[in-house]
Design a protein around this nucleic acid. Structure first.
Length: 432
DNA sequence: AGCCTTTGACCAGCG
DNA sequence: TCGCTGGTCAAAGGC
């Protein structure tokens, strides 16, 4: 889809509780700044955040990050790079939120199903939850797949492919060591770099090139542990984990699969124009697109419609209402939104019956801008970033309230880390 | 046995 | 040319 060729997309991320962005190195700031200026349409670099000007030393992303704990993804369109920052220890927003384990109890670790271990320090106290923004370059199907490449848990390659780590290095300017992985598939030149926090949470993933082969058959991949994916999750909640390379003790309970990306794709298709940002397909269309987007993976859950309905009944009946039945369009700057995808819709759709109150967050964005966000009770540091999120009846639009709230929360609710995903060299992405 | 991670060494690009 | 840095190699060891 050539129309998307120079757009990218975003993401959002949960800020790692243990990460004090205020201490980020100059190199890192420079890097982000440089990326920022590469964005073709800088006009998009306007946000709804105030006081951003106080962070004149860095790029928008840095300013926003510094201000609100966001690390607004920056896109270097010239390098054909796009990134997706996701947070939470070991999961994509989509997969994270669709996990019953993760959703059932905010105190449970989204990865282990056990109580999350509170951060050893309190640096995170100064940070906010970092919602997700997703931008996209390339066609939706690619987004679908790529977003899944984010991986789950501590496994560096929880994306369905098999990876072999061939190096690790502490990169200057980076707080965390960077690991290098190669796709183990013959003749596949895909590589990826993964940065992890001290806690082992993935903070950034950078993909290089694209796979020239389909994903290995489920349950047949050699790298069970390192490449266990959402797809590999067992419905009974026991993830195939604990093997080589995994250090987050992930135990996923996710009967829903590949759901998030489907929503991402939907967003992509509707990411044109002003109003497009707030337009979602109706249920029927979504379903249709979901099927389409399933594509190769064919992981569509037959019970999806039922679940969705059950998604809604529960929310209306028992979950906090801040993510529902509201129609407020948070003022957002216009943005060239080609390829816009957001994790928000995904996240919302992932609100399964057991969705925790703090899971209802999301951020819509195109380019590097934040178009809005919706967060409800997301625990960050010792505080819960609470935003009376709003959403449309379809359950796909979540938008920002005027003022977020911070409330004290148990450290056991902590455990988020930021994750990012950056894809390079998407030139080979299929066109629509 | 096969595949993985780890890790120090090596290489190449750049200022 | 030299030093720095990021990326890769490859031996060793683990599962």
């Amino acid at each position: 889809m050539t129309g998307f060729s120079d757009t990218f997309a975003v993401m959002g991320e949960w800020v790692d509780c243990s990460t004090n962005h205020k201490k980020r190195s100059k190199a890192e700031l420079d890097r982000e700044t440089s990326l920022e200026v590469d964005v073709k349409n800088k006009d998009f670099l306007q946000t709804n955040f105030q006081e951003r000007s106080s962070y004149s030393g860095g790029g928008l992303s840095e300013r926003v990050a510094a201000r609100a704990g966001f690390k607004v993804p920056s896109i270097n369109t010239e390098s054909n790079l796009w990134s997706l920052n996701i947070s939470s220890p070991g999961a994509t927003p989509a997969t994270l939120l669709e996990s019953p384990v993760f959703l059932s109890n905010p105190l449970l670790s989204p990865t282990t199903g056990k109580l999350s271990s509170p951060p050893s320090d309190h640096k995170a106290k100064d940070e906010f939850f970092d919602p997700t923004i997703i931008g996209v370059e390339s066609d939706a199907s690619q987004v679908y797949e790529q977003t899944h490449n984010i991986g789950l848990g501590g496994a560096p390659a929880d994306d369905g492919y098999n990876w072999r780590k061939y190096g690790q290095k502490l990169v200057k300017g980076s707080e965390y060591p960077r690991s290098y992985y190669k796709c183990t598939h013959p003749n596949c030149e895909v590589k990826k770099k993964v940065e992890r926090s001290r806690e082992g949470h993935i903070t950034e993933i950078i993909y290089a090139k694209t796979h020239n082969h389909p994903k290995p058959p489920l349950n047949r991949r050699s790298g069970i542990g390192s490449s266990g994916t959402c797809n590999d999750m067992q419905i009974d909640g026991t993830e195939q984990q604990g093997l080589a390379g995994t250090n987050e003790n992930i135990e996923w309970t996710s009967p829903v699969r590949n759901y998030g990306s489907m929503q991402v794709q939907n967003r992509t298709q509707f990411g044109y124009g002003d109003a497009a940002f707030f337009k979602d397909e109706d249920e029927e269309d979504r379903t249709s697109h979901m099927s389409d987007s399933m594509g190769y993976y064919g992981e569509a859950d037959e019970s999806e419609p039922k679940r969705r309905l059950e998604i809604k009944r529960t929310i209306q009946g028992g979950l906090p209402t801040q993510t529902h039945n509201h129609h407020e369009h948070y003022p957002v700057p216009h943005s060239r939104s080609e390829g816009l995808v957001t994790a928000s819709s995904s996240l919302f759709d992932f609100q399964t019956p057991m969705r925790p109150p703090w899971a209802g967050f999301s951020v819509y964005g195109g380019e590097t801008e934040l178009l809005g966000l919706s967060i409800s009770g997301l625990a960050i540091g010792q505080e819960r970033f609470s935003m009376p999120a709003t959403g449309d009846p379809a359950g796909l639009m979540l938008q920002l309230p005027a003022e977020p709230k911070l409330e004290q929360v148990s450290q056991q609710e902590l455990g988020f880390s930021r994750r990012s995903l950056i894809y390079r060299d998407t030139s080979s992405l299929p066109e629509i």
